[in-house]
Amino acid sequence: MATVKFKYKGEEKEVDISKIKKVWRVGKMISFTWDEGGGKTGRGAVSEKDAPKELLQMLEKQ
């Protein structure tokens, strides 16, 4: 499965696309949330040019 790689608060992170729940556009950035388990929700953002095609497809479906 595809993953999204991004930096959050200076830390490199990687999230499996299948865990992503919500995707939206903020200017030229793609923001998203995912389920971290245990009732926690993670947040992240990646530039439109660095976003994997699967993430962009999720954005178009909404």
Rank of each mutant, 00 (worst) to 15 (best):
M1P: 09
M1S: 11
M1G: 10
M1F: 09
M1E: 15
A2P: 09
A2L: 06
A2G: 08
T3W: 01
T3V: 07
T3Q: 03
V4G: 00
V4Y: 01
V4T: 01
K5I: 03
K5L: 02
F6M: 02
F6C: 12
K7D: 12
K7Q: 07
K7L: 12
K7I: 13
Y8F: 04
Y8D: 15
Y8T: 03
Y8I: 03
Y8L: 02
Y8G: 01
K9Y: 14
K9C: 15
K9N: 12
G10K: 01
G10E: 02
E11Y: 04
E11R: 06
E12M: 14
E12A: 04
K13F: 07
K13M: 07
E14Y: 03
E14C: 07
E14H: 06
V15P: 00
V15W: 00
D16A: 14
D16Q: 13
I17G: 02
I17Y: 01
S18I: 10
K19Y: 13
K19F: 13
K19H: 13
K19T: 14
I20S: 00
I20V: 05
K21N: 08
K21G: 15
K21P: 03
K22T: 13
K22Y: 15
K22Q: 15
K22D: 13
V23A: 10
W24K: 07
R25V: 06
V26D: 14
V26C: 15
V26Q: 07
V26N: 12
V26R: 09
G27C: 15
G27Q: 12
K28E: 12
K28M: 08
K28T: 10
K28V: 11
K28W: 07
M29F: 08
M29N: 12
M29Y: 07
I30T: 02
S31V: 09
S31K: 06
S31R: 06
S31A: 06
S31N: 11
F32L: 06
T33G: 04
T33P: 00
W34Y: 09
W34T: 01
W34H: 05
D35C: 15
D35V: 04
D35S: 05
D35Q: 12
E36I: 05
E36W: 07
G37Q: 10
G37K: 05
G37H: 08
G38P: 07
G38K: 04
G38T: 11
G38W: 07
G39F: 04
G39N: 12
K40D: 12
K40I: 09
K40W: 05
T41R: 07
T41E: 15
T41A: 10
T41F: 08
T41W: 12
T41K: 13
G42T: 05
G42A: 09
G42N: 05
R43A: 09
R43V: 11
G44P: 00
A45Q: 11
A45D: 14
A45T: 10
V46L: 04
V46R: 01
V46T: 06
V46C: 05
S47P: 13
E48I: 04
E48L: 07
E48S: 04
K49F: 08
K49W: 06
K49I: 10
K49M: 11
K49G: 06
D50M: 08
D50A: 07
D50K: 04
D50H: 14
A51M: 10
P52S: 03
P52I: 07
K53M: 11
K53D: 05
K53H: 05
K53P: 12
E54S: 07
E54F: 04
E54A: 05
L55V: 04
L56Q: 11
L56G: 05
L56F: 13
M58R: 05
M58I: 12
M58D: 03
M58W: 04
L59K: 03
L59P: 02
E60P: 09
E60K: 12
Q62T: 13
Q62V: 06
Q62W: 03
Q62I: 10
